[in-house]
Structures are given as structure tokens and as C-alpha cells.
Amino acid sequence: MTEVAPDDPAQSAKTWFAVGAAVPPFVREAGFQVWNRYAAVNSEFVGIHMDDTAGRAAGYPGAFGMGNLLWSWLHCALERWLDGQGRLEHLELRFRSPALKGDRIACTGIVTGRTEKEDGTTVLDLDVWAENDSGQRIAPGRARIRLGHAAR
């Protein structure tokens, strides 16, 4: 599990949130340890996430992870990166392929646009995604962040 703390003193806020800046990957291993915990808080006890037979019946190699958990992990990645300096206005993800048991999933993103607003805030546009060990983007999407005055 590798995570980069967003409080590196060498990084100014402007560099940290510049176009081209990367969201430090939030990395987790897919499997029952994380799926069961998520099922417990989201009451998502669905066969395809709990039972290999049900996963195979749905056309996959076995049980697979919840799209909602990838959604949460992306939120975790963005929250850690922002560290209170901005807020998420919009997030969208498309679930192209599931996370399978043992997959190492990295949730990350890159700043693609930065717009200074008249009210003194800054809006960032990002491409975001969850990718597996093979580098396959199993859940690509976009995000929009609004930075507060202090984070510019």
C-alpha cells in the first residue's frame, strides 16, 4: 500500500494543484477483506460480491468488487489530496470492468484544467480513474474541484 501524504512542505499549493499534477494513488487490494467491510456499512450483501458461483453465473471469473467501493476509494484519494483545501463539486465514474480478488487497485487522477474564478476561487477539472495491476482503467471518470482562497 503506497500513499503519498499531501503535506510535503516542498510542494507549494500552486504546484500541488497545477495542470498536470497527479492525485497521489490510493491503493487497495480487492478481495473479501475490503468487500465484506464495505458490504457491512453499505448493506451491500449481493451474491456477485460474496460468492464465486454467483460471480461466474454473471459472466465473470468469480466474485467481484462493488462499483460503489471504487467510488468510495476515489473519494478517499481526492480527500487526501485536497487535505481540506478544496471541495469536490462533481464526480463521475463509469464501471467498465470489475475488480477481481487479488487485484491491486490504484485510484488516482490528473489535473487537466484550472480556471481562476472572479469570486477568488479556483476550479480544477480532472481525469480520474481506478486501474488494476495491468494498468487497465477499470473505472474511468472525471471530477471537478473548487479550491478555496487559501489553496490557490
Binding site: 459472466g59 462499483g67 464526480l91 463521475e92 465514474l93 463509469r94
Partner: peptide, 14 residues
Amino acid sequence: PHALNGGISTAYSG
């Protein structure tokens, strides 16, 4: 007989 979550999009008000 089968269902999957195809994607999510959320607008947060703040």
C-alpha cells in the same frame, strides 16, 4: 436476470 452498476455521477452542492 443479471444487473450491474454501470456508473455513477454526482453533483455535490457543498
